[in-house]
Every structure is written in C-alpha cells, then in structure tokens.
C-alpha cells in the first residue's frame, strides 16, 4: 500500500468513528454558535460596535471550540490501544498522525468555516467581509488543529489533561488569532486582507511541516 492510501485509511477510519458518534462532533459546533450568539447579549445590540468586534469574537470562539474538541483527538485511541498499534505499524507514525489531524480538521474545523458566515450576518458583516472571514478560517482552523495536536499529545494520559491542554496551546494560538481576526478587520477598514492572509498561509505551511513531527515525538513519550 502506498503512503497516501495509508493516510486515507486513517482519515476514513476517524471520519467513520466521528460519524457514529455525532453528538460529540455537534457539541463543539453548537458551542461555537452559542458562544458567538452570547456576545451581543452581553454587549448590547448597537450594530456599529458589533461589526467592530465580530472578527475577534468569531475567531476567539473558533479557538475555544477547537480547544474543546482536542481531547477527542488522541485520548480514545490511547485508551483502547489503537495508538500503540499505530506506533508499531511499519509506516511512519507522522503519516498516521497527519491523517488523524486532517480528519480532526474535517470534523471540527471545517464545520466552523461553513457556519461562520451565518453567524457573521448576526454581526452585520458585509458579504465581502464574510468571504474574508471564511477564507481566514479556512486557512486558520487547520493551523489550530495542527498546533492543538501537539498540546493534545503532550497531555495524553496526564492528570487534569483537559485543562492543561488549553494552558499549553492557547498562547501558541496567538499568531493565528491576530492574523485571522486581523484579516477580517483589515478588509472592513478597507486596507485589504492579502497581507494577513498570506502570513496566515505561511504559518500554516510551517505548521504542516513541523507540527506532526512534534506531535509524533510527544506521542512516543506518552506511550513509553
């Protein structure tokens, strides 16, 4: 079997598992929707203000929703022994981990991208800004999954891992937040989002290269 078909097999497996455990997947999506919808209630309905805070609110909510789904990434595989078998497979563990991260993004990142415009309308964003918002999330959510995977792997089987993972990964999410929310803001203020988006893309490329490697190292430590 080629490396690519092994990768696809892992993606397919995780998607199947997620599909049969829908409630967990939907939980983080609903969390995203609810958190974003709470902000106008807390701040007030002035559209000018809402339009101004929309990019930040949507992005922070996306960060938190991703965070919520990170525990699912490796914990179950660790508990039922699948992770051990993956580490013992005669294929690079980084490839399998890459497949798992990709599946994680498909399940918990992509839905956020797709629902974001609906929530953006609540904040009176224009159609152009909505497009930029989707684009920034499309580049940004895989980045969140990749960085989050490192945190999830490091806290695997650790006391209080659920809270710890947010302490470890949220500071690392700062650049993604700044460039992601910044892209939308820059577009709204007429400065053009290209600079922000290309920086976000650059970070994504960097993370695709480094994160599976660090995650693999962390997983091997957890399995010792």
């Amino acid at each position: 079997m080629s490396a690519f078909s092994v990768f696809l097999a892992v993606v397919r497996r995780d998607l199947l598992v997620a599909l049969r455990r829908k409630s967990e997947v939907l939980t983080s999506l609903f969390f995203f929707v609810i958190v974003v919808s709470l902000f106008p209630l807390g701040i007030g309905p002035e559209m000018d203000l809402l339009r101004k805070i929309a990019p930040g609110v949507l992005w922070v909510a996306a960060l938190l929703a991703t965070m919520l789904s990170l525990n699912r990434l490796f914990a179950n595989d660790h508990a039922d022994g699948s992770l051990e078998q993956m580490a013992l497979a005669p294929v690079p563990l980084g490839l399998l981990v890459g497949g798992k991260i990709f599946a994680h993004w498909l399940v918990s990142g992509l839905p956020l991208v797709l629902i974001a415009p609906v929530l953006g309308i609540q904040f009176d964003l224009g159609s152009r800004a909505l497009g930029v918002l989707m684009l920034s999330l499309l580049l940004g959510t895989p980045l969140l999954s990749l960085i989050g995977a490192i945190g999830a792997a490091l806290t695997l089987g650790v006391r209080g891992g659920g809270v710890l993972v947010s302490l470890l990964t949220l500071p690392l999410y700062v650049p993604a937040l700044i460039f992601g929310a910044g892209a939308v803001e820059a577009d709204i203020s007429g400065m053009g989002a290209a600079g922000h988006l290309s920086l976000l893309g650059g970070l994504l490329a960097l993370a695709v290269f480094f994160a599976p490697w660090a995650t693999t190292g962390a997983l091997k430590i957890a399995l010792e």
Binding site: L154, T155, V158, R159, G160, G161, L164, L167, L168, L170, P171
Partner: peptide
C-alpha cells in the same frame, strides 16, 4: 503563559 504551561506540564 508559556512559562506557566511548561511548569504545569512538568508538574502534572
């Protein structure tokens, strides 16, 4: 925060 993360991870 990064320092706190490092200390908390090692402590856990």
């Amino acid at each position: 925060f990064l320092y706190l993360g490092f200390i908390a991870l090692q402590a856990a």
